[in-house]
């Protein structure tokens, strides 16, 4: 399968202003050098605890936030990617050709009208359906707004498209002329999905879409996501802290800690055999709804450190039960150890 989205050394830092003159005293490293490749048609899961930067990553990738550094390549033909690779690896870093290619293909450099141009290709579904829908707008207007704003359809044609999309997400015409607060959580989430898919994006970021709904509705939404992915050929980035849901729907999963990816593998492989100590602790802590299964969960000590002052070397070493001397000094690289399973840990390599 071909690559749809690739990020290279993506960084998103927030400055911390302090002192009388409000100068930058520190930086919150929300996303710290993330390189991943999302393949076309797959559902890529991104898990981690709160504050690890996964939501920030999702929003930066679709350019709702401006990245501090790094590159984002969306649907770039492979020969161009090869050329960029060659130019970057050679000593010709500042060549005009590289700059030219970057300006054309690297989403991180887009500004102004070029940015509005790619909005059509990438969309997002938020976690809380109550706050992601304008309470003063009718459902009809909420869903048809993307069409009107992008200039794709108006009036009767727009209405037809809206109805088509409504049926696809499992709602009916009766729901058009209502306000969002008249619906249940699951239905509101469907409206949010309909809005996101109206302008035919290729890539959709799902930011914890099932966290605010009940267990019984969760299954409905997951079914919907899978059906829509097959139907419309979508690629998902499924961000969540709910590990059991991600296990069911994602093809590949990455684990994030303090802005860095620590492990990445096929879902089954990762859940069965996590290698990074943090991933091991994380997966062992999922409460299994079966009283006969006895697990010995790994309980981590301490709290997640603040992203303003991350520990030196491997950021996990203060809490790692298997930390070595080298972990305090050198940061481990995310290396592929076979079969697409990537780990960033000195224990492994």
């Amino acid at each position: 399968m071909s690559t749809l989205l690739e990020t290279r050394r993506l960084k998103k830092y927030y400055p911390v202003l302090g002192g009388v003159l409000r100068r930058k005293v520190a930086e919150i490293k929300a996303v710290d050098e993330v390189n991943i490749r999302i393949l076309k048609g797959e559902c890529f899961g991104l898990v981690g605890e709160s504050g690890c930067g996964k939501t920030t990553f999702g929003k930066t990738v679709i350019r709702l936030l401006d990245p501090t550094a790094g590159s984002i390549y969306l649907d770039v033909p492979s020969d161009i990617m090869e050329e960029i690779d060659k130019l970057e690896n050679s000593d010709d870093r500042d060549s005009r050709r590289l700059k030219e290619l970057r300006k054309k293909y690297d989403l991180a450099t887009y500004r102004g009208s070029m940015l509005s141009g790619i909005r059509k290709k990438m969309q997002i579904v938020y976690q809380d359906p109550t706050s992601s829908l304008n309470p003063r707008m009718l459902v009809k207007n909420i869903i048809s707004e993307p069409l009107i704003v992008q200039g794709l359809a108006k009036g009767q044609a727009a209405r037809k498209k809206v109805l088509e999309m409504l049926y696809k997400v499992g709602l009916t015409e009766r729901h058009l002329y209502r306000y969002p607060h008249e619906f249940s959580g699951g239905q509101r989430q469907r409206i949010a999905v309909a809005r996101a898919l109206m302008i035919d994006p290729e890539f959709v970021v799902l930011d914890e879409p099932t966290s605010s709904v009940d267990v019984s509705v969760r299954a409905q939404l997951l079914n919907l996501f899978q059906d829509l992915q097959k139907d419309l050929n979508l690629t998902y980035l499924f961000v969540s802290h709910d590990l059991s849901v991600v296990e069911c729907i994602a093809h590949r999963v990455a684990v994030m800690y303090l802005g860095k990816i620590v492990e990445l593998a096929q879902t089954e492989e990762l859940y069965k055999n996590p290698l990074h100590p943090y991933a091991q602790a994380l997966f062992s802590s999922i409460p299994i709804p079966d009283p006969t299964v006895q697990k010995r969960p790994i309980i981590l000590t301490g709290e997640v450190p603040s992203p303003v002052n991350p520990p030196s070397g491997c950021t996990f070493h203060p809490r790692c039960p298997k930390a070595m001397q080298i972990c305090t000094e050198k940061e481990p690289e995310l290396k592929d150890i076979g079969n697409g399973h990537m780990v960033a840990c000195h224990l492994i390599h």
Binding site: V215, R218, A219, Q220, Q226, E268
Partner: peptide, 14 residues
């Protein structure tokens, strides 16, 4: 309720 808990490999039942 127990059936609707998402489990990998099985289709989602709501």
């Amino acid at each position: 309720l127990l059936e609707s808990i998402p489990t990998p490999g099985k289709p989602f039942k709501s």
